[in-house]
Write a protein that binds this DNA or RNA. Structure first.
Length: 264
DNA sequence: ATGCCTGCGGTTCGCAGA
């Protein structure tokens, strides 16, 4: 079973990239970010035609998240419970995994997240980022107590450490890499999550985002900010992690590429 | 030091992204 995250930077601009990738990679569950459209404008039919159930939490112009699933899903939350938010950055659903010989299978809880960028820091946008992360952390604490298979997947807008940027010194004062940002991510992880990518390698130089500007892709000036956090019950089934960086070389690409993990 | 590039809204330049 493959679970993926992909910040598409406008679903309407990227629907053909997305459907090509869905057909090729055949992920079972996908969390999308930066839809930049309202639910009525989401290209649902094209995705359903590939065998996916679709749950969206859209917004005009900015933000917007969705979960695609080949398994039946029930949406639990749009927005972090208890966190008043004008911006569509969180969607949570429970997928019913198939059991053996038609028996009812177990549940897999999936949280799709799009963390605020937070720049400029300090300032109100950075305060919002930290408040969002604090609210998510408190909610995730309750979810872990359920002891389910649980994946929090999305664009975290956090560079976890210096291995995760081509030029880490350029990000030192940025909201994506400030010590307080990294500490906030650690507080979430330390509840009991594992970064799927870091469970498979200690290597640097693996990125999920390259800016459109200044030839960042051609220079491999990237950062790793799209992450899959796995609960203990999920990480014990982790087999493989991949980053589909070739997507960044396509015509009119998103500035992010899909990151995925395979669970048994 | 700044902009570089892309998408959106709504008209053509400002804002946001990271």
């Amino acid at each position: 079973m493959i679970i993926a995250t992909f910040n598409v930077n406008s679903i309407r601009q990227r629907i053909e990239h997305l459907t090509r990738w869905l057909a090729a990679r055949a992920p079972d569950i996908v969390c999308l970010q930066e839809l930049k459209c309202q639910d009525e404008a989401f290209p649902r039919a094209e995705i359903e035609a590939l065998g996916y159930n679709v749950a969206t939490h859209g917004q005009k112009t900015f933000n917007g998240v969705a979960i695609l699933s080949k398994f039946p899903i029930e949406v639990e939350h749009r927005g972090i419970p208890g966190f008043e938010d004008e911006q569509a950055r969180y969607i949570e659903a429970v997928a019913s995994l198939p059991g053996k010989d038609g028996a009812p299978g177990e549940a897999l809880r999936v949280c799709g997240v799009y963390f605020p960028n937070g720049n400029p820091a300090p300032g109100p946008k950075y305060d919002y980022k930290l408040a969002f992360m604090a609210a998510l952390t408190e909610h995730a604490r309750g979810l872990l107590a359920l002891e389910e298979k649980l994946v929090i997947a999305g664009d975290y807008n956090i560079i976890p450490d210096s291995r995760d940027a081509k030029f880490p010194e350029l990000w030192a004062a940025d909201a994506l890499a400030l010590p307080e940002s990294r500490a906030a991510l650690k507080r979430l992880e330390n509840l009991g999550f594992t970064d799927a990518f870091r469970a498979t390698t200690d290597a640097g130089g693996h990125y999920s985002f390259w800016d459109y500007q200044a030839g960042a892709w051609q220079r491999n000036n990237g950062i790793r900010i799209d992450h899959l956090l796995l609960s203990p019950r999920a990480v014990e089934t982790l087999v493989e992690v991949g980053i589909d960086k070739e997507m960044r070389a396509e015509e009119k690409p998103s500035d992010h590429v899909p990151v995925w993990c395979r669970l048994t």
